[in-house]
């Protein structure tokens, strides 16, 4: 995701790839609908233009429900990020806290946290709050781990330099550690952004009354009559995921322009 904002050539190539993928989709849809005559072709792979048509037609409903899901997951995402950052800072300050928590944080990466979503909804029964909590929950672990790695990534000489200036712990954090941890933070954010949305949708699938997940489920149950609606909900959730991902990437580019992948090309390979 590095070059396309800046370099015209690279973005052109990406546009070509996207176009190729879209054409491939349409061709595949045409094949299974009109050539292979697969049973219920639209549920397998409908024509993309028909899906977009349905999406435009159902736009008000989709936008409204999408906004609920998206809004809740953003709130959760932001809360989770804040908690993760604070936790990472505390862990970087105290070795004891880090030693105590880090095995659990690594283990938690392996736990299907999403599996908790239905349980949480079962306990709280408040759709908005469960969405926020779940989105926050999946966000906070990756953020904390990557942020901590970033905080610890500074070289000893850099820290010694700050010490030689008699910089306080606070100044060292403000001028050095927090800056150095930003790339790690963004790596965590990029990992958790789609997870936050997934978590919200899962809560909806497990019985919440509104949101894009509910539309997805209901249109799935209504079968062939709602098949394009179903595909538009999928398209919407994909687009939401992508927009969120791009926003994080954009913020990363603006806030950490010194990262090697954002630098102007100087030399390199031939």
């Amino acid at each position: 995701m590095s070059g396309w904002l800046r370099k015209g050539g690279q973005s052109g190539i990406i546009v070509l790839w996207v176009l190729g993928a879209l054409i491939l989709w349409e061709a595949a849809a045409w094949y299974i609908t009109d050539i292979a005559h697969v049973l219920a072709p639209a549920s397998k792979l409908p024509y993309l233009h028909l899906v977009i048509e349905a999406l435009i037609q159902h736009w008000p409903t989709l936008a409204e429900q999408g906004a609920i899901t998206f809004g809740n997951s953003i709130t959760g995402f932001l809360i989770g990020t804040a908690v993760g950052v604070i936790l990472a800072i505390v862990m970087s300050l105290s070795r004891a806290v880090e030693l105590t928590l880090s095995p659990y944080m690594i283990a938690s990466q392996m736990v299907p946290i999403i599996g908790l979503a239905p349980i949480l909804y079962g306990i709280i029964h408040d759709p908005a709050l469960s969405r926020v909590l779940m989105a926050g929950y999946v966000t906070f672990f990756p953020v904390a781990i990557h942020m901590l790695r970033g905080l610890q990534s500074i070289r000893p000489e850099q820290e010694e330099l700050m010490r030689s200036y008699a910089a306080s712990v606070w100044t060292t954090y403000a001028k050095l550690r927090l800056k150095a941890s930003l790339p790690g933070l963004f790596a965590g954010l990029k990992l958790s952004a789609p997870l936050a949305i997934t978590a919200s949708i899962i809560v909806e699938l497990m019985g919440a009354p509104n949101g894009i997940g509910v539309l997805m489920l209901s249109s799935l149950y209504y079968g062939s009559s709602q098949v394009y609606m179903f595909w538009s909900t999928i398209l919407i959730s994909v687009v939401i995921g992508l927009i969120w991902f791009l926003l994080v990437t954009l913020a990363e580019r603006l806030l950490t322009p010194w990262q090697p992948e954002f630098r102007q090309q100087g030399g390199g390979e031939r």
């Binding site: 190539i13 792979l45 789609p194 999928i234």
Partner: peptide
């Protein structure tokens, strides 16, 4: 890498796709 980088960027976008969107489609397939 000339063409490859674009393809990888496109693949990276898959990372942003919520899994739940994939599940029903794959069930259909």
């Amino acid at each position: 890498p000339q063409a490859g980088k674009g393809a990888i960027t496109l693949l990276a976008a898959l990372n942003a796709v919520p899994i739940v969107a994939l599940a029903p489609v794959m069930n259909n397939w």
